[in-house]
Amino acid sequence: MVTSESRTGGVVLSDLTKSYGEVQAVRGVTISIHPGETLALLGPNGAGKSTTIDMMLGLTRPDSGTVSLFGSSPAAAVQAGVVGGMLQTGSLLGYLSVRELVTMVASLYPHPLNVDEVLRLTGTTEIAERPTTKLSGGQTQRVRMAMALVADPELLVLDEPTAALDVEGRRDFWTAMRAVAARGKTVVFATHYLEEADAFADRIILMARGRIVADGPPTEIKARVGARTIRATLPGVDDTALSSLPGVMKADQRGDAFVLTCSDSASSDTALRALLLHYPQASDIEVRGAGLEEAFLDLTGDDGVESDEAPRP
């Protein structure tokens, strides 16, 4: 039985490993998630995100290591109805309307939310009477979100929830999900959309090849590899002169413009001051923090080929 006191334990994964035959899907993953935290598991396909989530939910038994959900085993937490999830694969159950399906799922939980409220929150009110098999990809995904939300779970686990959605669908999805997170629920989601993890999570865990390669708030993840670039239009200047400015790692010429790469925000500040001091004619200056995309490539040590494929358009 999950008591309110044990819930303060949050979600604890200790040294999880899982192999499928020769393939080591997860090789020693330890994560401690505080109640109310929103955590993104970020990584390319095959990083071990889905296997980690399956072990977290008790769908897959780890080869070694333990999972504790608010002080209970995954099976006990699921039985107690404190877990809600959106799995990566899966279509909806047929021969039901959207409303009937959500009502059916709600009935399985001890303290479900009001079905109409959840339909409204997920933007599925207009399609509530439609058969579940006659929906678009985006609508299907919103119904699956409704099924996860109606449980009113303490822990909401989403395995690549927006993989099938277009840009607008993703934005709508996260708008609805923010409302949930705001209620103090613990949210864990897997994604390979870097901007999604950055925008929505309090904390990002980067996974690659079954291991955690970085763990921290989005800003910290970026700062750790935190390359910054300064772009400036500066005609008639030699790139070797620019690359010798303090804080600059390298300088690339792009026509009349230069791109100066700095290792972090402190060195880009230094470089910018030096640039303006020595080349006051520099114009059209732009300083950019590296996106998670670059952080990702750097931390996972990928050559970029795999990651180019990972984020779907």
């Binding site: 939910l57 008790g58 769908l59 699921v78 039985q79 107690a80 109805g81 877990v83 809600g84 999830g85 799995l87 694969t89 899966g90 279509s91 909806l92 159950l93 799922v105 399985l108 939980y109 001890p110 099924m147 449980a151 686990v157």
Partner: peptide, 14 residues
Amino acid sequence: SVGWTRQLRITPLR
């Protein structure tokens, strides 16, 4: 085949 049984396994339905 459509993953529904997996979905049910993360609900309190025995």
